[in-house]
Each structure stands twice: as structure tokens, then as C-alpha cells.
């Protein structure tokens, strides 16, 4: 069987599979087979998150309104990160905030820890007022934020983008111009669930974010166009639940593949997807996942590949 080993932003990883930020707590359940662990988004101050209900199942997916529940930067650095460092997988830290200064502080302090191999800037969380997503929907603010954070650390800086924008190319290009080493797409789509009985918003936070198989075509579209526009290495995610989904994301232009909602229903999904991908590579006579990257793009777009 071909090896699944993959290079991403200077890292060598045993497989292309990682978790989506906020969809796995490795300190509770273990790493469930991911090749690098992505933390839940950390903010400067602790956040309890939104009042319940926080989740609602929808056709082929779910809407969540968690509200970035996290212990805050100090406790993350003191309690969580040292324990995560012992898990034996590289750590990608996801960072969020309400101002470029907040992001920069977190990036500098987290990036200094030896277990952290990359930092993901979450500029796409739909579940907090202002901050985050309002930066990630504006190309100018995105460029400025990435530029500022890029200066704060030596580890690769990735921008996690929202699909809920008019033109993903513009945001992806702005992140690239700001110096992003890679992109992560997609975060959840903005969504809302209505309580059938009261006809009021069902979730405690009001609106929410849609994830799961329902979002896969939207995610593939975002990955495809972000890749065509920037040629940056991409962590592709949105509805991945198996090896053939992963091949589609690689073909669209992703180098790593993230799994989120599918982990909730099946904690063995990462191991299964890796096996399925290896079988598919063998069938195709491919030597590794990198052979499939950007296969969906016409040869003309190769000029923009890094």
C-alpha cells in the first residue's frame, strides 16, 4: 500500500488527516488517529461559550452555536499546552480575537512553545458578535491581521477562512499578500435553526454555523478557487467522512484534509478514511497523496502553484 506521508509548510506528517478546530478534545478522548492535533480556538480571555441549546441536527449535518468556549490564553498555556505536548503529535494552535492586537499577543506567546508547529488564525467563527468573522470577511483587514501575526512568530501561520463571503478568491489573496504560509477552508457556513414549536431561533446563541456532509460542495468550491487564486498549501475540510471525500479535497487543491462533524458520529473515522485513501491511491497507481493534489485544476492554473 502506498505511504500516506505528506509534506505541509515544511512539516512531514504520516498522513494528510487532521481534525477541524473545535471538533476534538484530545485531552479527553485521545487524538483518534490525526497526524497533527488542531486545538479549539483560543482567545485572550476565557469564554464560557453561548447558552444552550448549542447544537441542532439538520439534513446531512448540524448547526452549532458554541461561542468559542475556551479557557483563555493564560490557562491554555499553563494547563493545556504542556499536556497536549505529551500526546506525541504535532500541535497546531487555533487563535481567535476581537482586534489584531489580541491575535498578535496570542500568536507570539503560543508560537514560542516548542510543541506548536503552526498557528491557525480563526477569522471565520460565525458564533461571536463582531471580531473574528468581521475581520475574515474584509480583504483589507484580513491582509493587515495576517501581516501583523506573521511578524510575531517563526512557525507557519495559516488563515482559516469562512465560506460565507461573496468572493473567496479576494479573501484568500489578501491572506496570501499578508504573508500567510497556508490556508484552512472552510469554517462553518452561517446558518440558523428555527424551533418548530415556538417559531423562534432554536439555538441559545441565535444563529449558528452549518457543518457536516451538507456543506461539502461549498467547501470543495472554496478550496478549488482559493488554490487557483493563491497556490498556497491548503487544509481542506467541510463534510469529510471518508477516503473518497479526502481524494476530492486533494483534487480541489488541498494538501491536508480536516475532519470535524464526522468525528462526532464515528471516532474511528480518521483511521478508516486513511485506509480508504491508501486503497484508492493503490488502485490509481499513485505513489502518495501528493499525486492527487490539484488534479481537478486545468493545466493552465499550474502557473500559480507554489
Amino acid at each position: 500500500m502506498p505511504s500516506l506521508e505528506t509534506s505541509f509548510c515544511g512539516l512531514r506528517l504520516p498522513t494528510p488527516f487532521v481534525n477541524g478546530s473545535g471538533t476534538l478534545d484530545a485531552l479527553v478522548s485521545g487524538t483518534l488517529g490525526v497526524s497533527a492535533f488542531v486545538t479549539k480556538t483560543v482567545t485572550l480571555n476565557p469564554r464560557e461559550g453561548n447558552p444552550p441549546p448549542r447544537i441542532a441536527e439538520t439534513p446531512a449535518g448540524m448547526v452549532n452555536s458554541i461561542g468559542l468556549a475556551n479557557p483563555g490564553l493564560d490557562r491554555f498555556l499553563e494547563d493545556d499546552l504542556p499536556r497536549l505536548a505529551e500526546l506525541g503529535v504535532p500541535i497546531v494552535a487555533s487563535v481567535g480575537g476581537w482586534s489584531p492586537g489580541e491575535y498578535a499577543t496570542a500568536v507570539a506567546r503560543i508560537g514560542a512553545h516548542p510543541a506548536v508547529v503552526a498557528i491557525e488564525l480563526n477569522v471565520s467563527c460565525p458564533n461571536v458578535e463582531s471580531g473574528c468573522i468581521s475581520i475574515g470577511t474584509d480583504p483589507r483587514e484580513t491582509r493587515a491581521l495576517v501581516e501583523r501575526c506573521r511578524r510575531e512568530t517563526d512557525v507557519p501561520v495559516l488563515a482559516k477562512l469562512s465560506p460565507s463571503v461573496t468572493e473567496i478568491e479576494a479573501i484568500a489573496t489578501a491572506a496570501a499578500e499578508g504573508g500567510a504560509d497556508g490556508l484552512v477552508l472552510i469554517n462553518t457556513l452561517r446558518g440558523i435553526a428555527i424551533d418548530r414549536a415556538t417559531l423562534r431561533p432554536l439555538l441559545g446563541g441565535g444563529g449558528g454555523g452549518l457543518s457536516g456532509p451538507a456543506v461539502k460542495p461549498v467547501a470543495l468550491h472554496a478550496v478549488f478557487h482559493a488554490y487557483a487564486a493563491t497556490g498556497l498549501p491548503i487544509v481542506g475540510m467541510g463534510g469529510v467522512a471518508g477516503g473518497s471525500d479526502a481524494s476530492e479535497f486533494l483534487a480541489a487543491g488541498a494538501t491536508l484534509v480536516g475532519i470535524g462533524t464526522a468525528l462526532f458520529r464515528d471516532p474511528a473515522v480518521v483511521a478508516r478514511a486513511a485506509l480508504e485513501l491508501a486503497e484508492e491511491l493503490e488502485r490509481r497507481g499513485a505513489s502518495g497523496p501528493e499525486d492527487l493534489v490539484a488534479a481537478a485544476h486545468p493545466p493552465t492554473s499550474t502557473s500559480s502553484r507554489a
Partner: peptide, 27 residues
Amino acid sequence: EAAMACGFGACHGCAVKIDGRWKRLCV
């Protein structure tokens, strides 16, 4: 009881007031 997507601490969906704060009921 709380609505749960995962049951093993991954989703933060099952928030209940515990010790005066929203915490994960499954954990």
C-alpha cells in the same frame, strides 16, 4: 440531560450550568 453531538468532549454542545459555569455534561 443535554443535547449531545458526540458524547466524548469533542463538540462542546452539551453545555449545562455546573459549578456555576457552562460546562460539558458528557465530561
